[in-house]
């Protein structure tokens, strides 16, 4: 049963690599949103440092949201999604493989880039490590939640904006915990609790949300 999923994972990653443009667009979006904060707020290092965790996390959440918009759209348009639904393995696993491929190619770059951006906003040392760790645990949850929204809004009027309305409220706990962890680290307080809770959320989301994604896909295909 793992082989088909491996095929899918490879295919999705290689498709995204063929369309490097998409990766670049999302990464550029992430960087630009963060650039907007100093421009809007002012260059004072102290101010920027205060908003740094929130700014990076909000930018990551938005970047995740816009990149997920097309997670299923291409496969849906050309009929591949039907074939995936008819393939022998459970659709939930297929969906999970797609989300993993998506996260590896579009989520992971954000995590890798985040320390540099955090540094530019005045975070230092351990704070940068906590920022990257919180994103590493948090962005997969964002991808899974966003995938539910992407599956629900396939072929629906006003897809992208509608998806934001559906999914952003569900991002709230992840955002609070992720930015919270960095905040704690900034005050030299224990940040482990936040990270553990993020990990717990991920552990719950990983088996459950693929079921919701599969359900949404089946409804769309019906």
């Amino acid at each position: 049963m793992m082989r088909p999923l491996w095929t899918l994972l490879q295919r999705d990653i290689s498709l995204i690599v063929t369309r490097r443009q998409d990766v670049l667009t999302v990464v550029a979006f992430f960087v630009i949103v963060i650039t907007l904060f100093p421009l809007a707020i002012g260059p004072e290092p102290e101010k920027l440092r205060t908003i740094a965790p929130g700014a990076v996390w909000v930018a990551a959440a938005l970047a995740s949201l816009i990149s997920l918009d097309r997670l299923f759209a291409d496969d849906w348009r050309d009929g591949t999604l039907e074939q995936l639904a008819l393939a022998p393995q459970p659709l939930a696993l297929t969906a999970l493989a797609k989300v993993i491929a998506h996260w590896l190619s579009l989520g992971l770059p954000l995590v890798i880039l985040s320390p540099a951006l955090g540094y530019s906003l005045g975070l230092q040392g351990i704070e940068l490590a906590v920022l990257a760790a919180s994103l590493l645990l948090g962005t997969p949850i964002l991808s899974l939640l966003g995938a539910v929204g992407a599956a629900m809004t396939l072929g629906v009027r006003g897809g992208g904006a509608l998806m934001a309305l559906l999914i952003l409220p569900l991002y709230v706990p992840v955002l609070i915990l992720g930015a919270g962890a960095v905040n704690e680290a900034m005050f030299a307080a224990p940040y482990q609790a936040h990270l553990s809770l993020l990990g717990a959320l991920l552990a719950v989301a990983l088996p459950l949300l693929p079921l919701a994604i599969a359900g949404a896909l089946r409804i769309t295909l019906d």
Partner: peptide
């Protein structure tokens, strides 16, 4: 279909 998708959203929510 809209009802089914919305119901799923309500449950996830």
């Amino acid at each position: 279909k809209g009802g089914r998708a919305a119901s799923l959203l309500a449950i996830v929510g």
